[in-house]
């Protein structure tokens, strides 16, 4: 990921800041600037998610690209946040067999990747068991 591309989204990645349509009450992450349900009637505002939710489904990654190779096996899950929206994120666990559908999780701040020994380090949100 290029440095500017990461930087543009870092507030969302660090703090789970998405959006909410105040007209229909729907939450969005990643943020949407237009509510697809309300269209021009919608009123979109920034919203910081609580960071708690449950695993809807997950995959175990056993073969990863170079940047993530040392972390295999690891879990990537679709997580439904308590506000109702869903996102895809890594789930930290010491034993991949402990992860199950419906497991309660909460967000935490971790290192996502590093561009070699001299490049930028990307930080962001991962999830752990609540």
């Amino acid at each position: 990921m290029s440095v500017p591309r990461f930087w543009r989204k870092q507030t969302n990645r660090y703090n789970l800041i998405g959006t909410k349509c105040e007209t229909c009450g729907t939450y969005y992450f990643p943020p949407r600037s237009l509510c697809p349900k309300c269209r021009r009637e919608g009123k979109i505002v920034d919203y910081k998610f609580k960071g708690t939710g449950k695993i809807v489904t997950f995959s175990v990654v056993r073969t990863a690209s170079d940047k993530f190779d040392l972390q295999t096996p690891f879990v990537v899950a679709i997580i439904e946040l308590d506000e109702g929206t869903r996102l895809t994120a890594p789930v930290i666990c010491s034993d991949i067999n402990e992860v199950y559908i419906g497991m309660r999780v909460k967000s935490t701040f971790r290192k996502i990747s590093a561009d070699g020994d001299s490049g930028i380090i990307v930080y962001g949100t991962k999830f752990i068991r609540e």
């Binding site: 040392l70 972390q71 971790r110 290192k111």
Partner: peptide, 16 residues
């Protein structure tokens, strides 16, 4: 530390 933890992630989680 876990492999994705460093002094910065520890600082953030302590502050939070």
């Amino acid at each position: 530390p876990d492999m994705d933890e460093d002094s910065l992630t520890i600082a953030v989680n302590a502050a939070r």
